[in-house]
Design a binder for these strands. Structure first.
Lengths: 140, 140
DNA sequence: CGGGATCCTTATCGATACTG
DNA sequence: CAGTATCGATAAGGATCCCG
């Protein structure tokens, strides 16, 4: 399947000691586990404090209950989020960040802050890109 | 297209207090633009230096050419990646990070490093979670 | 209120084939 | 080599109903 005798992959070199190529595979899997459309967002919102299901849903934005539910289950499985049920009427379920989740909040905020701070540049790039496409369609 | 005031950009900036939902809506859109399964990974790999299409593909891992192509187009549109074509035989296309992309690399690395450093805890949480599920199925 | 089960509609992916 | 185009499979997503 993969008879590649790659001479050298300096790939993960600058990530501490993660050296050889198999490490990139590893990082890939872990990264894929959390980089879906909603996980980072939910973590960030929970960073403001514990939230109940529908409150969370309102804050996150245009997310369906199904997707939020599965996102929360994933986050719980990864150990980022705790789920506390109170059997009252109506029942009450509170989601909060665990220790791991709070630590994770750090890089997540870094990313979020960067994105917000540079959204104007990203938008500008988008405009430039579509203009470039348009002019290329007419003639180089 | 966007006649809103510039000060609006400061809305979610501090991220500690992101009250109203509309502010989070903005961050949500920007975050969603880059938090797919591959974008972060590709940016990270390109952080090691310019790469050609197939080299990139080999390094990133199990990604199809179609998905890599569309991911690269997205990254290019967002201004993170530049695409340089050399009309030789065989043709040669080199992808590299732009200035914006290199700056973006910073938070991306932060995230990647964190994930790698804490993958063991995430795995442990997974095990604990599935065990908890199993015991709940038998009897509370 | 929280969320599982179901159905149904899309968006996404992978494999193949074809161009420059 | 570096793609684009097309098509079938499939996973993700939304809507609705129902239960505790």
């Amino acid at each position: 399947m993969k008879p590649d005798n790659q001479e050298e992959t300096a790939t993960c070199a600058d990530l501490g000691d993660c050296g050889p190529a198999h490490a990139c595979d590893h990082i890939s899997r872990m990264l894929a586990r959390i980089s879906d459309k909603w996980s980072l967002l939910v973590v960030r919102v929970l960073g403001h404090g514990p939230r109940r299901f529908n409150a969370l849903r309102r804050e996150v934005g245009e997310i369906s209950q199904k997707v939020l539910a599965s996102t929360l289950r994933e986050l719980e499985a990864n150990g980022f989020v705790s789920r506390t049920v109170t059997h009252t009427t109506p029942p009450q379920v509170e989601y909060a960040l665990t220790d791991l989740g709070r630590e994770f909040l750090d890089p997540v905020r870094g990313l979020a802050e960067w994105v917000v701070a540079n959204s104007a540049r990203m938008d500008a790039a988008r405009v430039a890109y579509s203009q470039r496409l348009a002019s290329e369609r007419q003639g180089v």
